[in-house]
Design a protein around this nucleic acid. Structure first.
Lengths: 124, 124
DNA sequence: TTAATAGTAAACCATATGGTTTACTATATC
DNA sequence: GATATAGTAAACCATATGGTTTACTATTAA
């Protein structure tokens, strides 16, 4: 077995860098949202955007490098599909912080609803 | 009421831009992780990093602009604290995709464990 | 009051990012 | 074979990002 595995911290950190940065752009999030309705070729994906085809192509490349989409080339058509697995990695990362936004919400709730007998609100 | 509210789509999109981009850097994620153990002043936060103080200061500014930390100035000491609420926004955004990584995992599971009678695996 | 500490501001630099336009390649179609 | 279509590649540009160093401000302490 190689010294590097998919679960090794550094590997995961690099992946998170790519995924978070890929998600940090509205155009790319719109592309992902579009792909939840099914795979599509590049020109189809580019149509709704007020932007050149190469620009959309670059965004798709960023998403691909982050592992968020897969591409199958068939003739001259590149068909893109959503790959949500990296989002699970993000979700896992987020879970470490869930209790903190819970705490914040509870504190806010306690502050706003003092007539609640001071009981913490149930977590959603 | 003003024409712009915290839940208006554009507002949320801008926020997601800031938060995702803030999270797309390892140094900043380490800073957040540190802050889960409690608030700290800037020099304390900077200590573990092989990086100048102004550099860390900039990272903290990015986190602050994304709403991920709050800062209380007391004399010359700036005390930073985690604010995880924007991470809940991220979590909400992620939930729209949860069923897709579920599907992918199921498909993988089906492929790997053909001896399973073809039944979909239970969601975690 | 002098000196040390906490931190930002500003100027600077290299590289990354997000867009453009203008080729160019490869596949379909007439 | 000629032409249209799908898409990338490459060159270019403006701005953003992540780091540096060198001031500078403000507060605390000797």
């Amino acid at each position: 077995m190689l010294s590097s595995t998919a679960t090794e911290p550094r590997f995961q950190e690099e992946k998170l860098d790519l995924v978070f940065r890929a998600l940090g752009d509205r155009t790319r999030r719109r592309l992902l949202a579009r792909l939840t309705t099914g795979s599509a070729m590049v020109t189809e994906l580019a149509k709704p955007f007020d932007m050149s085809l190469p620009a959309v192509g670059k965004h798709l490349r960023v998403l691909e490098n982050a592992g968020l989409i897969t591409r199958t080339v068939n003739g001259r058509v590149h068909r893109c599909a959503l790959n949500a697995l990296p989002l699970k990695t993000v979700d896992d990362w987020l879970q470490h912080y869930q209790r903190f936004w819970g705490e914040t919400l509870d504190a806010l709730s306690d502050y706003v609803q003092r007539d609640n007998g001071g009981k913490p609100r149930k977590r959603s």
